[in-house]
Write a protein that binds this DNA or RNA. Structure first.
Lengths: 188, 188
DNA sequence: CACTATACGGAACATTGTTCCGCTTAAGCA
DNA sequence: TGCTTAAGCGGAACAATGTTCCGTATAGTG
């Protein structure tokens, strides 16, 4: 019953172009930020813009596709950190990691905050994948009484993203304002 | 010696148009946010775009001009609050006020964070006018030992701006994340 | 009242996201 | 292997927007 809607395979060149686009996007984003013109990405991939838009409904979806892997990895790290560290420490470490992720991606933070509907896919992606991860961390840290319990994970996630536009210190610690926020989380 | 470079007065129609532009901009910004197209503002003012651009080198300068008055008022409020309240309380109240200001201006926060060089004039304006005000508040609160001393006023200002995109609660208190940040400021 | 620098309006240009469509070509079939 | 056909392609074209340019109009001055 599963083959009723599969008259043909995906064309090989289509799949190749899709890969080329993802690779090109990764390169261009790293070099020029996520605001890079669609044409630039298409050119780098050696295809026309039309091809880009057949594979992705809009630029935001392309951005989302490029970062999905890393976002998944970040989400997965939450569970690992929880196993190897005390809750509050795991939370701090994970936030630091998240901070680094956002700061590393040129313009990602700006895109997140821009409010531009063109980037709607990004918040949805982050919320969907990282929301549960952060919720687990917050719950664990709240259970030990280290932090307050009235914190909305999504708001915190958004806030940390908002504060992460400045590059983190070379030593890998989050920027001072994120640290302040984490301090505010503690029970007094 | 002061008149050597004043061969003529400013033309009356020029001054009128400038006022019309500022008024129109205020209206349009309130209605459509600071991202409103330049043409829309020019039309509302009943002038051509050329006129807009002779009075302001770019849209950011226009935005800056429109908000200058309110920014000045916000800066002035710092001194007043310091006189009528204990330092830490004054700080909290002023931050709340600043938060409300940013959140009220549709798109101001987005513009601040966008990183778009087109908006460079805005951070400069905020830093120039509000930086000293916040420094005074922080110094006073640090002197009484209520808050830590290692906080960079400019970073904090930027951070609060970053977090103020969500509308404040109806009761006028700042959003939860700003409150968390203010809590992190306290000495333990 | 004439003259001229100032100011004006809006067409024109550049950049970017996105859509459209005629042409190409890979996949399935005989 | 050669045909047929729909999936896929490239890039011209369109729309929105910031900004510049320039021929025309006019306020201020003597």
């Amino acid at each position: 019953m599963t083959a009723s809607t599969e008259p043909r395979k995906v064309r090989a060149d289509a799949r190749q172009n899709l890969d080329a686009l993802l690779t090109a996007a990764r390169t261009v984003f790293a070099h020029s930020g996520v605001d890079a013109p669609a044409r630039e990405i298409a050119t780098e991939a050696g295809v026309g813009v039309g091809t880009l838009y057949r594979h992705f409904p809009n630029r935001a979806e392309l951005v989302a596709a490029v970062f999905t892997t890393e976002i998944d990895a970040t989400a997965a790290a939450a569970a690992e950190l929880l196993e190897s560290h005390p809750p509050k420490e795991a939370l701090d470490l994970w936030i630091t990691r998240f901070t680094r992720f956002v700061a590393t991606k040129q313009g990602l933070s700006a895109a997140l905050r821009s409010g531009d509907p063109a980037f709607d896919a990004l918040p949805a992606l982050l919320i969907g994948k990282l929301g549960p991860a952060l919720t687990a961390l917050l719950d664990a840290a709240a259970a030990t009484g280290d932090i307050r319990e009235d914190v909305d994970p999504l708001e915190l996630l958004q806030a940390v993203g908002d504060l992460s536009h400045r590059a983190p210190s070379p030593d890998g610690s989050p920027n001072p304002m994120v640290r302040l926020l984490l301090d505010g989380l503690r029970t007094r």
